Amino acid sequence: MRIIIIGFGVIGRGLAKVLYKKREFLRKNYGDFNVVAIADRSGAIIGEDIDLKRAIEVKEKSGKIINYPGIEKSSLEVIKDVDADVVVEVTPSNLDTGEPARTHIIESFKHGKHVVTANKGPLALYFKELMETAKRYNKIFKFEASVGGAMPIINLAKETLAGNKIISIRGILNGTTNYILTKMEEGLDFETVLKEAKELGIAETNPYQDISGLDTAAKIVILANAIMGLNKTIKDVKVRGIEKITPEALFLANKRGYTIKLIGEIVNGYLIVEPKLIPINSPLNVKGTLNVAMFETDLAKEVVVVGRGAGAEETASAILSDLISIKKMIENES
């Protein structure tokens, strides 16, 4: 399989590290996964089988991939010009416009390439358009890594639970807010915990999308559309963040046998993100940076999956799973 990586930040490099580390394992069990191009804002490198270790070292040392040495070629030019089977789109998520990822994905389909993405932005804003474009060009589109990091949420629902009617989905889909609320249960105030989370790298320098609930909103839109067949965008979600939660509120909730968690849910076609009282013994009461998703189904009843919802290697795990799935599908067709 010939792969183009668009975006070489934390997630792009995480995928490259995993492909390098597991190269022999993958070759033995699934065949070759060769990266033939990497592009980001600094330029691109192109080759039959790029030295991933060197590419990572150069990017992390200089901040630019073009020093590989590379060429001054845009991501779109790479997508159009380089012969490859799959484009992995892992540029930063933009929840306002979905760009440049939306254009990258559409142009990949138009130029005969399947797509794997971890990018929430275009999926939360243009899900229907992207799916229809993939179908029009007869291309495979996978995005397990866009929700829940390493947690197999979408594949679990669509494959393992195939035949079940998914009645509702609810869960904690943002590790930053879960960490903050977990620490606040110890009596620390919101601002103190947020500062600590930034210092530990758990929260972004600008954590607005996390604490406002927008990140969770984007993820439940993806789940609603991909799993439940709805046609929603992030504008359809009722959103309330955790900014007004106090240690006192958590203390009072604990005394009554509850905790407070930022819950995203899809029930009866409605999409809601807001802090909710959760029984302390509930499967939804996970701690720290963990994520959890609970499916209510007609046959299997309640199914719960818990795992790490973020991190370079964890997200790379989901991307790799999608790449292996596409490789098998291509080989079955040939």
Rank of each mutant, 00 (worst) to 15 (best):
E129N: 03
L123G: 02
E107T: 15
A124H: 10
I105T: 05
P122I: 04
V116S: 01
K128P: 02
K110I: 12
G121E: 08
Y137M: 12
A124L: 10
F127Y: 15
T133Q: 12
P100L: 03
K128Q: 11
H104G: 07
R136Q: 14
K128V: 00
A124T: 10
T103R: 14
E129P: 05
E99Y: 10
V115I: 13
S108M: 10
P122H: 05
E129D: 11
R136L: 15
A118H: 02
T97N: 06
Y126L: 03
K128T: 00
A124V: 09
F109M: 06
Y137T: 12
R136N: 13
T117W: 06
L123M: 11
T97Q: 05
G121P: 11
F127N: 03
F109G: 02
L125S: 08
L130F: 01
Y126F: 15
R136G: 07
A124E: 08
R102F: 14
L125C: 09
V116M: 00
R102M: 10
Y126H: 13
A118V: 04
A118C: 11
T133Y: 11
L125P: 04
V115Q: 05
F109C: 05
E129C: 04
F109A: 04
F109V: 08
L125H: 07
A134N: 04
G98L: 08
H104I: 11
F127K: 00
K113G: 07
A134T: 05
E107G: 13
F127R: 01
L125D: 06
N119D: 14
F109Y: 05
H104P: 07
N119T: 15
Y126Q: 04
K113T: 06
V115T: 11
K110Y: 00
K135I: 00
A124W: 09
A118W: 02
E107K: 15
S108P: 09
K110T: 05
T103S: 15
Y126I: 00
T103C: 11
G112R: 06
R102D: 07
D96T: 15
T103G: 10
D96C: 12
Y137N: 11
K135S: 12
A101T: 01
G112D: 10
H111Y: 14
P122T: 02
M131D: 10
T117Y: 06
I106N: 08
H104M: 14
K110R: 14
I105E: 06
V115K: 04
L130T: 01
I106Q: 11
F109K: 04
A118R: 01
H114M: 06
K120H: 11
M131Y: 10
F127C: 00
R136Y: 14
K110S: 06
Y137R: 08
K135D: 12
F109P: 07
V116F: 03
K110E: 14
K128L: 09
E132D: 13
I106R: 07
E107W: 12
H111F: 12
F109R: 01
L130N: 01
R136D: 13
E107L: 15
F127M: 01
V115N: 09
A124S: 15
H111D: 10
T133N: 12
E99G: 02
M131F: 06
H111M: 08
A134Y: 02
I105H: 06
I105D: 07
E129S: 04
A118E: 03
